[in-house]
Amino acid sequence: MARLSPAELRERLERDLPGAVVETTPLQISPPPAHGPPPGPYSTDDTLVAPDLLVEAACYLRDQLGYAFLSDLAVVDFLHAGLFELVYRFYHVDGGPALMLKIRVPRANPRVPSLTPRWPGANFHEREALDLFGIIFDGHPYPKRIYMWDEFEGWPMRKDFPRQGDKYIGEDE
């Protein structure tokens, strides 16, 4: 299969999966600093997909385009912009650079359909996202925490998680 560039992928998705592709707006990652110029916005070439059509888009990549290897699911917490961005990274079995699908979900209600029933490799990735960020994956067969113990409260990797003085860690640690 030919190596697709992100622009070509976007074109194909727009053509074959209507409604999947969402406009990519640049994000302001951090609030403007006290002094000095504000850093530029965070913009990306990768295709932004609507969360509801994630599973279809991923399966399209796998079945139609041959990108059958889901390598990584990374979650980025954009506190200032008020959303989570999930980055799904796919590789083609014959090799070559990756194609990413990105989803943005609001921080207040982070629900994403789970890829695990159709793609077992996403299992641990989604559990990690749940454990560390609190993102709910609808349809995951075993939605339990993976690193922290089950009774832990809070989502540790979120930017607003207190780094000190938690109920588990005293103020002086």
Partner: peptide
């Protein structure tokens, strides 16, 4: 496959630093 995903916000510290650990996924 060991991978590092970095997101930078223009400062000297990473904004997001994620490790794609092979042993973790191989346990699936």
């Amino acid at each position: 496959e060991l991978g590092f995903y970095l997101v930078s916000d223009g400062s000297t510290r990473p904004y997001r630093y994620k490790v794609r650990a092979p042993s973790f996924i191989n346990l699936t």
